[in-house]
Design a binder for these strands. Sequence first.
DNA 1: TAGTGGTCTAGACCACCTC
DNA 2: AGGTGGTCTAGACCACTAC
Lengths: 228, 228
Amino acid sequence: MPEDVELVEAMRRELTPLAPGERLPAEAEWAERLGVTRHRLRQAVDRLAAEGLVERRRGVGTVVAPPPIPYRIGDHTRFTLNLRDLGLAPASRLLGVQRTAADADTARRLRLAAGAPVWRIATLRLTGSTPISTIVHHLPAEPLPDLDQRFEGGSVHDCLHGYGLRLRRLSTWISAVPAGPDDARSLRLAPRLPVLRIRTLSGDAQGRPWEWAVTRARADRLDLHLES
Amino acid sequence: MPEDVELVEAMRRELTPLAPGERLPAEAEWAERLGVTRHRLRQAVDRLAAEGLVERRRGVGTVVAPPPIPYRIGDHTRFTLNLRDLGLAPASRLLGVQRTAADADTARRLRLAAGAPVWRIATLRLTGSTPISTIVHHLPAEPLPDLDQRFEGGSVHDCLHGYGLRLRRLSTWISAVPAGPDDARSLRLAPRLPVLRIRTLSGDAQGRPWEWAVTRARADRLDLHLES
DNA sequence: TAGTGGTCTAGACCACCTC
DNA sequence: AGGTGGTCTAGACCACTAC
């Protein structure tokens, strides 16, 4: 057997009756009680954490995690409304708007010359005080003067209405990657936990691309939802 | 620092110039050369494997992995055509068609009574001889007599045309979960590597649900793609 | 300061594949 | 048989949090 399934199942049974937020035994104590080394117990907790069933808090302990958060991609308004319905206090924090040179990927996606000026908008999304995703939007700078003055957070697409632009999602790519140091910092996520990387290309009615956005969301807490 | 970033970067530099399929040093040798324990080196390889850069082969060695496979969800035809264009020899293997009682989740999704009879179609998708995803379709059994006789692999949706049904995707949920023992077996995947779980509800033009499908795809090798 | 999870060492043995 | 990755033990020390 490639992994100690029985151990994980035994632990799963222990945490099922508990409510989110309740503390689990300390690793050393739990390991002793189950008759395994701490090393093996930690491997099992690793799995439970990746499944989103428990959450580790360094210096504090391991607690039962709340249920997964439904996360609607590409629609700020519905993201906000959905989570509010669930009593989850959605919030967005604008991390910064910069005018920079497009990297190779962005330039290709937006059909710009390499190094062309683009707006780079970085946003953090949270429920309550828990960060759940970072989003980096890229838009061509030349056709959108003063975007840094006009955008004050909230929905990028709404702000673009001011320029007479109505964007729709053209294409979406999704993959799971292990959290890097940046993710660990910005999402307060343990390294190596999986992160969902969602890349979306949006454009106008004629199919011309206007926005290249890269979302990195904690995979342990989210369930992505795409309608239609 | 939560993880040995420098070590991973050093290893990344070593494998970048290599071509897919080329062998990397044995773990013991590599660890000694880099001046770290095998334990730490393995942690670093764990990350590279989760990123899809390397592939471990027990008893053989660790090799550079081929580039990610674009995977179009919910469209068997395009899945096949896309991969053929890339020279990847797509294939589907029908694992089985059964008539069973709907589980709670399926019944809820298809708006059936608990335990109602459903068809359960299990399929394995591969490129060449490499399994990349398992798909389990659930459809109500009563309105679709003899589906087990009429479906012989390929596209489920195409087969439903024979009943006068044309399905469209109503809703999709995506999450990343660690590979379980079943995934390890069917996808020949190392346990704990992330798996993308894609659940889609499809229905007719009136929005009536007909099909509940759960795809489990290896996240290390795939890049999900959704058009429109 | 005491207790928690996070990292790391050193070493052993096992399961698997190739030859 | 020999080499590979996979698992496991026993123990140490560190970083962080709460009190």
